[in-house]
């Protein structure tokens, strides 16, 4: 599978260089991702015909849904120039824990209200990060590294295992499917709403401009502080939605349970070609990126690879994709 991906990258390199904006290559990234996805699917299907089935689609849908929603939040933060939000595990776990607790109450609130509170808590989490970043004026990577440790530690003092009643409406929804998992459709809506908002609205364009260059954005009269709040709180909405769905599709979890998601989210954002230095990136490309990561994960199981080899493969794919992307960018800026 790695070879498939490299092939894709080399082919992309030899293709005529695009004359798009300052080294953007969304088209190539999209082609590379979709090509790699097709190759993974074709190769796996040829060797293991069972792979090509509706069941596989559902499995992949579940795997990519929560990662997908979180990566929208992460991408917004990266594009806005705030580099990385390392507090995603805590940002997801806070609403998830609150939702599980409220659902488990002897006399639970209406589900819609619980969902709203969950999403609101995600926004609160984003707001806390934004508050610290804008007040202390220190790099968000470090702020969120710190707040994640604090947040997870405080949550760990509150509970060891949270359980979600299997017969609750949210669990019914979270585990159900309509062709694809319900939670996958929610992810699709999140992506399809976020992408045009970022690209075509005034605030969205300001956000991207801030990520491109703070001085330039300021000279245009954009409030940088406001943009930081906007980025973190919008990402917080994503974390809140993801947290609610996480609680709806995971019958029990502990505070550390979301740590492994962070790596997948960062991998998806990088694969989607979002530039770490801000200002550039496409939300729509998160779809093929997340799909590729989830498909590879499922395909590896068809090849009978154990957990250890799965990690090795996923890491290798990430490094190769990054190296290819970096190489491509180096050539296009030369």
């Amino acid at each position: 599978m790695t070879t498939a991906l490299t092939d894709q990258k080399t082919r992309a390199v030899t293709a005529p260089r695009p004359r798009t904006l300052k080294g953007d290559h969304y088209g190539i990234t999209a082609a590379a991702l979709l090509g790699a996805l097709v190759i993974v699917i074709v190769v796996t299907t040829v060797l293991h015909p069972d792979f090509f089935s509706g069941r596989t689609l559902i499995a992949i849908g579940f795997t990519m849904a929560i990662t997908g929603i979180l990566s929208v939040g992460q991408a917004i933060i990266t594009i806005s120039g705030a580099v990385l939000d390392l507090s995603i595990p805590a940002g997801l776990m806070l609403p998830a824990w609150a939702v599980a607790t409220m659902l488990g109450a002897s006399n639970p609130l209406p589900t819609a209200l619980i969902v709203l509170i969950g999403v609101a808590l995600g926004v609160v989490w984003g707001g806390i990060n934004a508050l610290i970043v804008t007040t202390l004026k220190i790099n968000p990577i470090i702020v969120t590294l710190g707040t994640n440790f604090i947040g997870i530690a405080i949550l760990s003092m509150q509970f060891t295992t949270a359980t979600v009643p299997g017969r609750s409406e949210l669990s019914m929804f979270g585990n159900g499917s309509l062709l694809l998992p319900n939670i996958w459709w929610v992810m699709l809506v999140v992506v399809l709403v976020a992408a045009p908002l970022l690209r075509y609205t005034r605030s969205g364009r300001h956000l991207t401009a801030t990520g491109g260059s703070v001085p330039a954005a300021r000279s245009r009269g954009i409030s940088i502080r406001g943009m930081r709040y906007l980025a973190f709180c919008t990402a917080g909405i994503c974390y809140g939605i993801a947290g609610v769905l996480f609680a709806g599709s995971t019958s029990n979890f502990n505070p550390m349970g979301s740590a492994s998601l962070l790596l997948s989210v960062i991998a998806a954002v990088i694969l989607a070609g979002v530039r770490m230095d801000g200002g550039r990136g496409s939300i729509l490309l998160l779809l093929p990126a997340c799909a590729l990561l989830a498909t590879v994960q499922t395909a590896l199981v068809f090849f009978g690879l154990d957990a250890a080899m799965q990690s090795v493969f996923q890491g290798a794919i990430l490094i190769i994709a990054l190296a290819g992307d970096g190489y491509l960018r180096k050539r296009s800026t030369r």
Partner: peptide, 9 residues
Amino acid sequence: PAARNLLTA
């Protein structure tokens, strides 16, 4: 997810 993938396989 690990169990889901194995069931799919």
